[in-house]
Design a protein around this nucleic acid. Sequence first.
DNA 1: GTGGTCTAGACCACA
DNA 2: GTGGTCTAGACCACG
Lengths: 131, 131, 131, 131
Amino acid sequence: MPTHPASLFSIATGSPEPIYRQLVEQVRRLSASGQLRPGDEMPSVREIAQALTLNPMTVSKAYGLLEMEGVLARRRGLGMVVAESAAPAAKADIVGLLRPTLERAATEARQLELDSDTVLSLFATILKETK
Amino acid sequence: MPTHPASLFSIATGSPEPIYRQLVEQVRRLSASGQLRPGDEMPSVREIAQALTLNPMTVSKAYGLLEMEGVLARRRGLGMVVAESAAPAAKADIVGLLRPTLERAATEARQLELDSDTVLSLFATILKETK
Amino acid sequence: MPTHPASLFSIATGSPEPIYRQLVEQVRRLSASGQLRPGDEMPSVREIAQALTLNPMTVSKAYGLLEMEGVLARRRGLGMVVAESAAPAAKADIVGLLRPTLERAATEARQLELDSDTVLSLFATILKETK
Amino acid sequence: MPTHPASLFSIATGSPEPIYRQLVEQVRRLSASGQLRPGDEMPSVREIAQALTLNPMTVSKAYGLLEMEGVLARRRGLGMVVAESAAPAAKADIVGLLRPTLERAATEARQLELDSDTVLSLFATILKETK
DNA sequence: GTGGTCTAGACCACA
DNA sequence: GTGGTCTAGACCACG
């Protein structure tokens, strides 16, 4: 599935999370979950920049980091593609990407002295809302 | 419960989370859950700074924010105490403090195309580990 | 040895090698060879930028990469220091840093059908000149 | 020696070295060392492009530069040949082609504070491996 | 004071 | 057309 527009991404300009990092993490997740597959062409820096009204350098920085990570590969003069080495992750690995945030939530819950049942039922509710 | 030394706090200097914010949120949680009760004396800025090898200004900034929030109160010449208005929160409010992190986890899960059952069971496991 | 001025670095603005990369590699070598030791404070971005008449962002980019590599560590609000994990490399590793360039030279020599003795004696001459 | 297919060249698309430059330098070395002799016919742009799956424009650019340098000559309608003026170089000139890379290696060695003996013995080892 | 992020815009190298 | 580099300058977060 050749990725067409730049509407893949949703950026929260107000967030404390830097824009370039939001891009990096979204691409990482899209790749891990198989929504982006090796060989898929990424939208050009300029396309994304225009679609999201960002500075091209911001997008470029994200692409650069993703290349260093091995998620994307540069085809000189031709744009970026999803790297062959970035095959969709095994389910165990996908799950692993979620771990840090869940661990943080668990730590906070413990500090709040909330019991597991309360926390789990809250999370279940939120998961339904988000869907 | 007289607040002992500054070993209440655990600070991760390596984390992207600013130090002052780590302090703020830990106090907020301790207060909401009733581990810190109105009238409890807080350790002095100097004590905390020394115990955790932090810049006193960092601790001071956290205290300032907590005072603005009404969690702590400044008693001139006597240091900070937990504010009377900071009674342990109702359970609903305590739960609310956990929401943002869980919402973030839910968003990430959706981007990873993980179904709710998988995510919930992972979270249950992590909650047990953390305990 | 606290690193004082920014005269540690020599930048060739004319080179095809990007400036930020020249900086990265020089710091890497200085660290590996023990001329920069863990804990040493690096000159600030602004100092280097001014001393070498570069844009601060160019220096910042280099520092950012060096942090990702684990060569430097950020002390928030206080500047960069040589990371503890960046202990001077064992001699074998230092030698390893030189390998890629020597391998390239060897490949070129072979393509030029030069015999080893000729190449080695040329290299010996150059090493003396450079000293 | 009639130049066979395009298997003369080995291109590393992943390298930071631009492709057209890799081609130029390989031809230059083959000519200097006498592996390509005046009058030898070069493979056509299309042949090389197809054999190495390169953009023909890339190959063409390399040929253009080599023509400007006087290494190749264009025979209208008949393709490129090795120029008469490109007689195998004198040994001193061949050696000169290797200089830049060796100088770079020497500079890096000095920055790593390695002594000449160590470096030379490492290079000798690598030369044997490469052979 | 420190580094980080983003924007705006120019220029270059590559295919 | 592609991405990369650099400059200039503003603004922010942190300590």
